[in-house]
Design a protein around this nucleic acid. Structure first.
Lengths: 162, 162
DNA sequence: TATTGTTATACTCTATAACTATA
DNA sequence: TATAGTTATAGAGTATAACAATA
């Protein structure tokens, strides 16, 4: 164990305090953006489709970690707002092909830019060292939280739950 | 401006990527805890009441940044589950006095411990330097995101909403 | 039979509007 | 009149269960 329990405990508490704080700021910015007005999950869907070009409902659900019905209703709303185009896939007709419309592309870009700008405003006070430290820490978090499960792999696992 | 735009941009993107990722892990842990099974907002309410001992609906709403009706319904649900006790305040009878029940105290502790443990499991692989770096970065984020507004001081501020 | 998706239903989180009770 | 809270209503986000269509 390369990190003693007490220190890990303090860091865990800090995460539990601060991550929701930052999340709230991001959410508030997304929702107050007159141009786009997207929720965070909606923004993530548009980001994913933007990155993939065209994709299926199952792919999006998988990426978001949501059930198919949940995704279906979210996509429904985004299709209703003309941000997404949904049509039967010609190769496998069980599937739907989902893509950004031009309006969806614009909405995504507007939300992305507004949120990024708002974060940049917050970050502006930071010196280069602090900024680098923050970025390194974010990379660490990405590594720790990208892995599936919660460390269920081995040692600690007395209470992972059935 | 002590931080150049491009670097800030990269950091902003990283925040936008990674904070939701960590948030999802926290949320999943809260919701999968058989002992308590709390949403993140519910957990935050219990945490606040735990810290305050006894408080009013307005105080909680203020702390959470929610409207009174929203808080009223959340508290309603937590009273229904016997996690909170709600009674008229004897001094000012417009107010309600809200406190943790014993069950609420247990639920809070169970959720808190389970979530902290799950975070600790993730953090365990970290060396002391990486851990210190992460903790410093979290302190930075706390500072940047505890301040009200989003730097609304200047350019952006046209859209605070009616 | 297995996969992809939708519909029906329900619960939580959040808001606004309209209201009651107390100060 | 102003403050504290509740009720009614609505929409987003999520889930499970039941179903339809295609492979």
């Amino acid at each position: 164990m390369s990190i003693d329990s007490e220190a890990a405990d303090a860091t865990a508490r800090a995460l539990l305090d601060i991550v929701p704080l930052v999340m709230r700021a991001i959410r508030a910015e997304m929702r107050s953006n007159r141009k786009a007005e997207l929720s965070v999950p909606q923004f993530r869907v548009l980001s994913y489709v933007h990155r993939r070009g065209s994709t299926s409902l199952s792919d999006i659900a998988e990426h978001m970690g949501l059930t198919l019905p949940s995704m279906s209703s979210m996509v429904d709303a985004l299709v209703g707002r003309r941000f997404l185009d949904r049509r039967p896939d010609s190769l496998d007709r069980r599937r739907v092909a989902i893509a950004l419309t031009d309006g969806g592309q614009e909405a995504w870009a507007a939300a992305h830019n507004a949120t990024r700008d708002s974060l940049i405003r917050r970050l502006r006070g930071l010196g280069p060292e602090k900024r680098a430290e923050l970025e390194a820490a974010l990379a660490t978090l990405r590594r720790l939280f990208s892995e599936e499960g919660d460390g269920s792999s081995a040692e600690g696992g007395t209470h992972v739950n059935p």
